[in-house]
Structure formats: C-alpha cells, structure tokens
Simulated assay, not measured.
Amino acid sequence: MSRVFQNRQDAGEQLAERLAETKVDADALVLGLPRGGLPIAEVVARKLGLKLEAFNVRKLGVPYQPELAMGAIAEDGTRFLNRRLIQMLELTEQDIRRVQDREEDTLAERSLRYRAGRPKPQIADRPIILVDDGLATGATMHAALNAIRHQHPERVTVAVPVAARDTADEFRRLADEFVCVLEPEDLGGVGCWYADFSQVSDQEVCDILAAMA
C-alpha cells in the first residue's frame, strides 16, 4: 500500500477540495479534534475562509491496551461507549470510570490551555464541520458528534481524509453530511495512509488556534 497523504497539510488540502465541491455556508464553523485533527482543520478553514476552533474529545482506551478505544468523552461530559467491545472484554463500570477520571482531568487542562481565555464557540443554529485526521472505530467522533448535537447546530458535517469503510457508512447515517477522501475496506490504522504522521504537540495546537483567532 502506498501512502496517500504526504502529511497533515496535504491531507487538509485534499479534504478542503472535497468540501469545496459541497455547499459550504459562509458562516460555518470548523471544529478540529485535538490534537491530530487541528493541523488538518486549519488547512480546511484557511482554504474555505472559515472560522476555526478546537473541540476537545479524549479516547477512552482499554486499560491494558490503551490504543484500543472502548469509547470516548467530550469536554462537556458527553460519553460514547462501545458496548459490544466492553462486553466482549468483560470490562466493568469501575474499569471504565478509572480511565474516564484520568481523561476528564486531561480534558479540563487542555480546554483551559487551548482556549487561552477565549469564550467557547457559538454552535447553536450554526453549520458545523467536524474534522479529524481519520476514523478507525470512530469512537472520538461519536462523542464529538453527540456533544455537538446537544448544542443544537443548524447541521453537522463530519469531514476526514481517511476512514474505514464501515465507519464511513455509519457516519453517513449519523451526520447531516459526511465528506471523506479515502475509504479503504482494510484501514490497517489511520497512520498507515500518511507518509508523515508525526505526533502533534499541545504547543502546535495552541499556535494554530492563536493564529486563527
């Protein structure tokens, strides 16, 4: 398999091209999921002339295999759980709560740092474009989408460079619109589709948001 995206900048440019083919409202707000989704969301926002903000979500990793998502939690407390996986692994509510408590602390810290005194973005009655660097199981995007729905946006577009095909089909049903560059049947991992999938730092996120404020 050849890498499709050189880096997040390239992925953002390709995603912006796909979004430009749809009807994008001039007052739409681009919300990037930290940390990896922010550089992509920045490119999308710049290319389409839209406002950018971060929407903080944290994966809830399986205790003994933290890269495997058993769910996710958004900054407003909205939680999504993969009940099928949790039952299969025989995880208890206590197992989930221990992980959730830790991630809630991280969310609180990041929300303060990333927002840097700025007010929370206005979401009600506004078109929202949720952006991440890719979807495997889609747990974090589930939590983000559910949390955004609670704030009554006009409509929500989920936009990513790459997504597993079954996950893409799921979000076509859940979101008002789903935009994706690539939908492989065998994803293998989001990073497999990037030549450079370097980790994004907190400082990079802060710098992006400050530049776009």
Rank of each mutant, 00 (worst) to 15 (best):
G61D: 08
A168K: 09
Y114C: 01
E183F: 06
P153S: 07
Q203C: 13
E93Q: 14
S198P: 14
H152Y: 10
G32Q: 06
P153Y: 04
I129D: 03
Q122F: 05
T137C: 04
N7D: 09
Q6N: 13
V179T: 05
A195K: 06
L130A: 05
D27S: 08
L145K: 07
A124C: 10
L89R: 15
K51P: 00
L174D: 13
H150A: 11
R58P: 06
A45G: 03
V57P: 03
L50G: 00
G37N: 04
G49C: 03
R118C: 04
R83M: 01
P39H: 09
V62H: 05
E109H: 07
W193F: 10
D169E: 15
V99I: 15
L19K: 00
F197K: 09
P39M: 12
C192T: 12
A175N: 04
V181E: 03
A11H: 01
E21Q: 01
N56S: 09
N146S: 14
M212E: 04
A147R: 02
K51E: 00
E104Y: 02
L91V: 13
G37D: 02
T106R: 02
C192S: 12
I96G: 14
L68A: 11
H150G: 11
E75K: 08
G77I: 14
E90L: 15
Q122G: 07
D101P: 13
E154Q: 05
D105P: 01
M141V: 10
M88H: 15
E67L: 12
I96R: 10
V179N: 03
Q100A: 14
D105W: 04
L182M: 06
H142N: 13
L89Q: 15
V190S: 10
E204I: 02
E104T: 03
G191Y: 14
L187K: 02
C192Y: 10
D101G: 15
G12M: 04
A144W: 02
F178E: 00
V43A: 04
R83K: 06
Q14G: 08
A195Q: 13
A54H: 02
F171Q: 04
R173V: 14
E75F: 11
M70A: 14
A195P: 08
P161N: 04
H152L: 07
R173G: 13
D196Y: 15
L91T: 06
A26I: 07
L145W: 11
L107M: 07
G49Q: 00
E42G: 07
I96S: 06
H152A: 02
A136E: 04
E183Y: 03
R118F: 13
I129F: 10
M212G: 09
I86A: 10
R113W: 10
V205L: 01
T140H: 03
D196G: 05
T92Q: 14
R172C: 14
T157M: 03
E177L: 12
C192N: 11
L31V: 08
V158C: 06
Q122T: 02
D176P: 15
A139W: 04
F197R: 05
L182R: 03
A147V: 07
G191W: 15
R118E: 05
